[in-house]
């Protein structure tokens, strides 16, 4: 995966956060993406966990640092630290439990209260393999995502459906924004050098980033 470079060498390090109600499958999405594992006996996440995975986008090595949070209320005290420095987020709900979808708005508000307005957000409807138990139609998810200018995919961590696509899409969009900013910075004669290797990109204070419009359906 790393190509000509070692595993610890990368061009960009992007922090992503996974948010959503308890039991929607955040941890299994993470383990499926980073380790290609799925655990049928899911235990509630305690506090925070994170994992990393590197992938190639446009011949660049992107290292994704993905933070998995506890959806339960009693772990919410650590939210500020959790969100710090995040450039992307996956807002997860369970398609078989409507309440988790209806809480998405609250999660989104919290995310926007603690992060940069240019953060890339994808709405994820997980457990799409349980088609006979669906309580949130695809149209509802798509509609909410369009209204809030989010990307949208339905995934199944169990069947590995769209999991890779979801993370790759978010990371690609982040990279696109960052590289666009780099190009624009390069045009400025007085700008500093391109960020060095391993440095976390600060996506704040750049109003020229294009507004994210529309949704990306599966």
């Amino acid at each position: 995966m790393a190509g000509y470079k070692g595993d610890d060498e990368y061009d960009y390090l992007f922090k992503l956060v996974l948010i959503g109600d308890s039991g929607v499958g955040k941890s299994n999405l993470l383990s499926r993406f980073t380790r290609n594992e799925f655990n049928l006996e899911s235990k509630s996440t305690i506090g925070v966990e994170f994992a990393t995975k590197s992938l190639n986008i446009d011949a660049k090595v992107i290292k994704a640092q993905i933070w998995d949070t506890a959806g339960q209320e009693r772990y919410r005290a650590i939210t500020s630290a959790y969100y710090r420095g995040a450039v992307g987020a996956l807002l997860v709900y369970d398609v078989t439990r409507r309440a988790t979808f209806e809480n998405a708005a609250r999660w989104l508000k919290e995310l926007r209260d603690h992060t940069d307005p240019n953060i890339v957000v994808m709405l994820i409807g997980n457990k799409s393999d349980l088609r006979h138990l669906v309580a949130v139609p695809t149209e509802d998810g798509k509609s909410f995502a369009e209204k809030e200018s989010l990307y949208f995919m339905e995934t199944s961590a169990l069947e590995a459906t769209n999991v890779e696509n979801a993370f790759t899409e978010v990371l690609s969009q982040i990279y696109r924004i960052v590289s666009k900013r780099t190009v624009e910075a390069g045009k400025n004669a007085s700008s500093s050098a391109v960020p060095s290797k391993g440095q976390t990109i600060n996506v704040k204070d750049d109003s020229s980033v294009l507004k994210k419009i529309g949704c990306c359906s599966n």
Binding site: T96, R98, A99, E102, H132, L133, V134, A135
Partner: peptide
């Protein structure tokens, strides 16, 4: 599974 479907049907959308 049918019981799960029933419980899902019994959830009313707000």
């Amino acid at each position: 599974n049918r019981l799960l479907q029933l419980n899902s049907d019994l959830e009313i959308t707000s």
